[in-house]
Nucleic acid binder design. Structure first.
Lengths: 237, 237
DNA sequence: AAGCCCGTTCCGCCCCTCGGAATGAGCCCC
DNA sequence: GGGGCTCATTCCGAGGGGCGGAACGGGCTT
């Protein structure tokens, strides 16, 4: 430390940020599902900071609502974190993320690809990319369909992974919405591992043969998995 | 600055926390649902900070995952916020138990059911199940409302059972949070027989008629009682 | 080409933060 | 009861880290 500075002494000037901020956020990151409440001493042990440092940082964190304190003195994460987490989700204008995935699914299957979300006892098409084929399924954004018909409806109605879904990762429906149509759908999961949307490929029933279905299902499943991860979602165990 | 310091110059020594941390968290708080993505210039305008300050703080925030940057340079809240938000919910060990109860309350009343806890002089929505109706109350997890408006707020402010509450076991508010909304709420008690949370059903005021309220109140009261017992809580004498 | 606004880099001075010591309360055990 | 731990909290000097402005360059529009 006293001499021989091969490295420029000011090397830490760039890309270093603000040390106090890093420390404060490390405090928040010290919590986990097993320990959503921590005492000052526990925080000190987990972070390696001095207790006086933690107390000083916690004043600002508490004021901003990112940290809170129980009457017994225990620390826990504050309510502002909940709000910030939702802002993270809101930052995904779903279309920007979903549309490329839908385009790929439409190309891979040759069918119309669409993204459905649940709305009460109906499902609503949020985005859609139509097939290029002469005979194809026509779906428009905003279309509302009953939840009890069609592959996407079935997927959105699942509280937990049904046996058929768990087996293949997708569901099929033939002639449910209309006699000559068919569809295949896979679930998109949110951060809480619950189904938040369904990605489907739909078209004329004639093309949904026992031979074609497995490949279509695999594509739908892959698209749904891609969207799930892009949204920060978590797959159920 | 040069003289005449009536106020002790070092009055800010106590209870001041760390200024840089407050600034960093103000950056995160600058986002909202309408603006989940912000440019550097927008952030500077909203926070009043210099752009150089924001850039410096953002290095630490990004490293911790609380802020992220898109390829086009726009800032958004980072994934660590989502995790932190879940830790906030985890601190209340209510989620697994409360959600089924909220679902039942939403089904029974046809209105949006939500669970509020007190956070200082505000109340925070911890969990929520929205109504299936076309016209319904919109509540998001993490929403903060003042304690002095709305049925849930009144419930949470009760140190002891007020006469009205003791009589019916629930409270009603009409047009308090917004002119066209109404809500009904009942208290959840902890092991020490003090109020730890409020369960409420909220929706358009038109549906909260003198005829409908008693049934809704009974449902809310039942839901709160159910949650109280499931949490090992004790009712006041 | 001038003007504007964008994002980014750089650096000196001041003040803010760090970290350790000191304090007191609470608890357990002999 | 008192000694000895661990707990949370307060205080302050010294050192360096962050603030805030200036300066720069690129991309637009006028």
């Amino acid at each position: 430390m006293t001499e021989t500075l091969d490295v420029p002494a000011r090397t830490n000037r760039d890309k270093d940020g603000v040390a106090a901020v890093g420390r404060a956020l490390a405090l928040v990151a010290a919590f986990d599902e097993r320990n959503p409440r921590l005492t000052l001493a526990e925080l000190a042990k987990r972070t390696g900071f001095y207790k006086s440092t933690i107390l000083r940082l916690s004043v600002s964190l508490e004021r901003a609502g990112f940290l809170a304190r129980d009457p017994d003195g225990a620390f826990r994460v504050g309510a502002a974190a909940l709000k910030a987490g939702q802002l993270y989700q809101a930052a995904f204008r779903l279309g920007d993320v979903a549309l490329p995935i839908l385009r790929k699914l439409a190309a891979d299957t040759g069918e119309t690809a669409s993204l459905y979300v649940r709305e009460g006892d109906m499902r609503v098409c949020l985005h859609r990319v139509e097939s290029a084929q002469m005979v194809r399924a026509i779906v428009r954004e905003g279309d509302r369909r009953p939840l009890d018909r069609g592959a996407a409806g079935k997927v959105l109605r699942l509280d937990q992974a049904a046996s058929e879904l768990a087996e293949n990762g997708f569901l099929v429906s033939i002639g449910e919405v209309s006699a000559e149509s068919a569809a295949i759908a896979a679930p998109v999961y949110g951060a809480d591992a619950r189904i938040v949307a369904a990605i489907s490929a739909s078209g004329p029933a004639q093309r949904f043969t026992p031979v074609a279905i497995p490949a279509m299902g695999a594509h739908a499943k892959a698209a749904a998995a891609e969207l799930t991860t892009r949204l920060g979602g978590r797959f159920p165990v």
